[in-house]
Design a protein around this nucleic acid. Structure first.
Lengths: 255, 255
DNA sequence: TGGTCTAGCCTGTATATACAACTTGGCGGG
DNA sequence: CCCGCCAAGTTGTATATACAGGCTAGACCA
């Protein structure tokens, strides 16, 4: 294994990513300009330019000619995080989002939760249980566990006004996510919270999210099958001209 | 609206993408080298390099130092297309995939199908109806319509040996996709084909796919909720070190 | 015949330089 | 006081040049 030195543009990228991930640079903060990097890092401007350009493509920073380079707002970064926040999704449809907090407590992780978060049995986690409403109709039951060490102020938040996922992304950029989607009839307690009929199928999304290299939250999102559907739209990067608004179109089609 | 000329590296990218999309360049074909582009397109090598490098990042081509640049195999290009092919998914689990073709016929598009494919009523489409089995157990009912003009040889294919999605991606790269996932109890005919119990929830994926700028196929994929789940794994591009194999891990966790 | 070595092509990276376009802040004139 | 203009800083693009390293085909030698 000859590791070999990484190219310098990659070293620059890693440096900036580390500063963002560590919280040294927060959203909207100014990133050193290309000329500043030329001086401090002893590289040519083209090398700095390549590093920053790639970070832009990857969604880490935003650049404005004439102004500078700024750390991007991570909520807008990828499909994952867009879909992540049900409040945004509802408001994008022009509807009203409200939520009810059923539980917000500190617990000791056990069994499945401990395994999912890669922690020992008994380590502190926060347990959040919320119902999200779209125009007053229940649309998601969010059953979430959060690593306590990751979000120390979790109990003081008012999750009626900021969703857990918005709160979590504000703490630190989420770097990796995985999810499983399945259809099943949820148990009676879930059905009751979501005002579902007996035998009504539900759509469940089980999602685990990483930040700074470790899993920080594990969520089970239950939806009534009759009132909710997951939509996705995929465009390969760099397409010459892309047709937009296809999703809206398909939604109409299916309605 | 001052359109303004596109930058030259973008013109180069568009040119190559057009040649790939039009079929002029097929998978594994050799793309002109940077020096050839320098001569024929009258640009500097760095500009050609940037264009080809970005096409590499976007998955259009693969480059090997010392050999050249080649059109990428589109099956490996994006999440969408990976998930697209159920046979690959099953084989990746180490299981046996078989399928039964229930229908393979030419029809005239009507109603929803015509609207989904952006064509007039009565235009020719192919209708495919298949059941996919994993180790002999039915796991997906594929109800697909394909624009006849796009895939003229569709009726001669043996879809027991090549799945429709593999066939379609072989014809032309799929450029855009959108999907809706929902949970519902399918109708009796579908339940019977998938050997589902009455009232058993099903997971339905309705997917529409674009190629060369127009929708070419519209598929309804029904799965038994008790035997199938959708998995996804999202890593932001360019992460310094990414932990892999998380999906496998979560699958175990949920089993 | 079979093995080795090298010349030539290819990509990957790094630098220096140049010009264009955009943004902001400050200066000066009305 | 306000408006307009200009200078400085910043990003975006383009070019020329250079060197390193991978790959291959063909020459060359045993």
């Amino acid at each position: 294994m000859t590791a070999g030195a990484k190219p310098r543009y990659q070293q620059l990228k890693d440096l900036i990513i580390r500063r963002i991930s560590s919280g040294d640079l927060g959203p909207q903060d100014r990133v050193p300009s290309e000329n500043e990097l030329v001086e401090s890092m002893n590289v040519s401007r083209m090398t700095a330019n390549r590093a920053m350009r790639e970070l832009t493509d990857e969604g880490y920073v935003q650049r404005v000619a004439g102004r500078g380079t700024f750390v991007a707002d991570f909520r807008a970064r990828s499909h994952v995080l867009e879909v992540h926040n049900i409040a945004d999704e509802i408001e994008r449809r022009g509807h009203a989002h409200t939520s009810e907090v059923l539980q917000q407590s500190r617990q000791h992780a056990r069994g499945e939760i401990a395994r999912a978060l890669h922690i020992e049995q008994g380590v502190d986690v926060f347990h959040l249980l919320l119902v999200h409403f779209e125009n007053g109709v229940p649309i998601q039951l969010e059953d979430r566990h959060v690593l306590a060490e990751f979000a120390p102020n979790c109990l003081e938040q008012d999750f009626r006004h900021i969703t857990p996922s918005a709160y979590l992304t504000a703490i630190s950029p989420l770097q990796e996510a995985e999810q499983v989607v399945r259809a099943a009839v949820p148990n009676a307690a879930v059905r009751q919270r979501l005002q579902m009929a007996d035998n009504e199928p539900g759509l469940a999304v089980i999602r685990r999210t990483w930040s700074r290299g470790r899993p920080v939250t594990f969520a089970r999102l239950h939806h009534p099958g009759s009132r909710y559907e997951l939509t996705g739209h995929y465009t390969p990067p760099g397409t010459p001209k892309s047709t937009t608004d296809n999703v809206v179109e398909l939604e109409k089609l299916q309605a």
